[in-house]
């Protein structure tokens, strides 16, 4: 049960790091701006007055910078999304190793990595939809990043449908491995799409990010990757137990 202990430690440390990132997002990270709010007259407030180009004509009130509170979702939505891309690519790497070696252990590793990636993808979708609703006022928009990510999620679900539809073990593993590689091609496409096609979705990695924003993001990212590895390790331990059950059953029946 050494692997289970490792998984629990990884998830616990990951949980602490992501919680620290969440708190830093509120207490130390620089507040981002999202548009302006025009009030009838000047008030005593901590919110800064908007630059001149956003000010209404004289006598028609005063514009204040609107703090972008929902941007705080960034500090856990993006780490979950990045982790989903990485784990999906790891699943494809195991799939390629299966195709080249035909060793069943790589099929198992690829399947478990795909399952872990799907958990992260679903959570990315949920946190993303909530951020979309808070920032854009709609629950969903068919813009490039959301659409490509949605296609990626559908392909990952299709991977499990495919597995369940084939009974013969080796054929199932081979088809699933090919499909895992095809599904993983979506990861770089979805990641890069906002840089190629104009999109409402923010481009995360770009120069000029304040260190007070970068630090909680990096801590959250490390924490999320540890949780991902912890989940993968726990599921692999479960699979090995399942294999031992099958071997013992066969020994008793034989």
């Amino acid at each position: 049960m050494k692997q289970l202990r490792t998984a629990i430690v990884l998830v616990a440390i990951g949980g602490l790091l992501t919680t620290a990132a969440f708190l830093m997002a509120f207490f130390t990270a620089e507040v981002q701006q999202f548009g302006t709010v025009t009030l009838e007259q000047e008030v005593d407030t901590v919110f800064p007055v908007a630059p001149d180009q956003f000010q209404p004509p004289a006598g028609e009130g005063i514009a204040y910078v609107r703090p972008w509170f929902s941007q705080k979702i960034f500090y856990f939505h993006v780490p979950v999304a990045e982790a989903s891309f990485l784990v999906l690519i790891i699943s494809a790497v195991f799939a390629i190793r299966f195709l080249t070696s035909k060793r069943a252990e790589f099929d198992t590793k690829s399947r478990i990595a795909m399952e872990t990636a799907l958990v992260f993808v679903v959570l990315t979708m949920i946190t993303g939809v909530l951020w979309t609703r808070a920032s854009w006022g709609v629950w969903w928009e068919w813009e490039p990043r959301l659409t490509t990510y949605f296609i990626m999620m559908l392909m990952m679900i299709a991977y499990f449908v495919l597995r369940n539809s084939i009974e013969e073990e080796e054929r199932r593993a081979t088809y699933a491995a090919v499909f895992a590689v095809v599904a993983a091609i979506n990861a770089p496409i979805s990641f890069m799409i906002t840089r190629v096609i104009p999109s409402n979705h923010p481009v995360v990695f770009q120069p000029g990010m304040a260190s007070s924003n970068l630090l909680p993001f990096i801590i959250g990212q490390i924490g999320m990757l540890m949780i991902g590895y912890g989940i993968y390790t726990a599921r692999m331990t479960e699979e090995r137990l399942r294999e031992r059950v099958e071997i013992a059953k066969e020994a008793l029946e034989g």
Partner: peptide
Amino acid sequence: PYVIGAYAILWIAF
């Protein structure tokens, strides 16, 4: 509510 909801759903799911 969206920020708190997103964080809560994430952790409850895990």
